[in-house]
Amino acid sequence: MTLLIVQATAVSPSTPDGWLPHFESVITLAIIMTAFLIAWLLNHAKPKARALGTSLSALACFGIVAWFGAVLGTGVIQNPKEFQVPMDAWKPALLWMQMIVAFCSGLFLLIVANRQLNHGSVLDLPSKNEASRYGRVSRIFHWTTAILFIFMIPTGIFASMIPENVWFRTEYSVMHKTIGFILLGLVIIRLIWNHRSTRPTLDHSLKPKERKLAHSVHILMYILMIAVPVTGYVMTSFHGYASYIFTLKLEPFLPKSDAYIIWGLFHKYLLQYLVYIILGAHVLGALKHHFIDKHADAIKRMVS
């Protein structure tokens, strides 16, 4: 087994002249800082600040639409890398689906922001969790990880589809891997915080099977948030490729092996589609409780 080597390195020597050095790391840092800023604003005491956070979330959704459209418009994935498995053919459809979801989410968030601005009240929220709701720290962790997860997935899809000879493929790979490592760190810190802070009880109006399902989805989300970056790192190492945390290059810590195929199946396909299913169930469940079942307290445990 080779030793883990960490060194500063030029991420993409093929980057065209005139571009900002390590610009992919600058963009990644901007995404991470923006995610934290939005999460902080969403849980601010003042309603105007929360409305600003929601508006920025909407702009981020529209930004995703523009970003996807720009990449799709370049035509580079019209002739993508050779498909490794039949499911690779689904990726363009997944990108279009994510564009539609992002656009609709942006419109919805603008409506929410307007409501917060006109009807919002001061949010008295402690740092630690309470019996009936999550505290400010848990909420900031929640929304920061959620936003970063939303950005991590498409960067990985683009990196896996863009042909090897396109210069910005490496930049997407760096962004994807950096966000993955940051997410892993945030999840670990979040688990430690959860252990030290009271966990709010589920809404008493939920049926026993709904409570069990909500608990199961919650656990699965944590497992996935850890498993996705870990399997990606192992897959990359077995493949003989380096990983990155911004401009730091992590050389493969495992010997090159065909085992990357098995780990790739877990990372790129099984876990990825599980994320779509579990995340979708999590969001739809919250919306159902709020709009259909009229369990207002259920969604207010994490949203105000």
Rank of each mutant, 00 (worst) to 15 (best):
L213P: 00
K91E: 04
F62G: 05
N165P: 03
I153Y: 00
H204A: 15
W263V: 10
S304G: 15
I262T: 13
K212S: 14
E130D: 09
S243Y: 03
G280N: 08
H267I: 03
L41N: 00
S160N: 10
A49T: 10
A131C: 08
S205Q: 14
K256E: 13
L265T: 06
I292F: 06
F149G: 08
L270Q: 11
F151T: 02
P86Y: 04
Y134D: 04
V234D: 00
M175S: 09
F253T: 07
N165G: 07
L202G: 05
T54G: 02
M99G: 15
N79F: 04
L42E: 02
K249G: 07
I150V: 15
T54M: 07
M97H: 01
F238P: 02
W96K: 08
M175K: 02
T201D: 14
L29E: 04
T28S: 10
I100F: 14
D124S: 11
F181T: 11
S216R: 15
G180I: 01
S14N: 12
L109V: 02
A49Q: 07
A227V: 06
L206Q: 09
Y260D: 11
G69Q: 04
F168P: 01
E171L: 07
F103L: 15
P21D: 05
Q78P: 00
K46S: 10
Y244Q: 14
V76P: 00
L248N: 07
R199M: 12
N43V: 08
S55G: 08
K212H: 09
P92V: 12
T198M: 15
P13K: 13
S216Q: 15
E164P: 00
T145R: 06
M235G: 00
P163E: 06
N129G: 11
A242Q: 06
A66W: 04
I150E: 01
P47N: 05
S173H: 04
V26L: 15
V275T: 14
L117G: 05
F103P: 02
F62I: 11
G240H: 12
L72I: 12
A10G: 07
V85W: 08
G156H: 02
E171I: 02
H290M: 04
I100Q: 03
T198W: 08
V6S: 06
M33H: 01
G75T: 12
I192W: 09
S138I: 02
K177M: 11
P13Q: 09
P86W: 10
W167K: 11
V65M: 04
P86T: 06
V234M: 13
L250C: 11
L117P: 00
I111K: 12
Q272E: 11
L59S: 10
L59H: 01
H142Q: 11
A113R: 02
A298T: 07
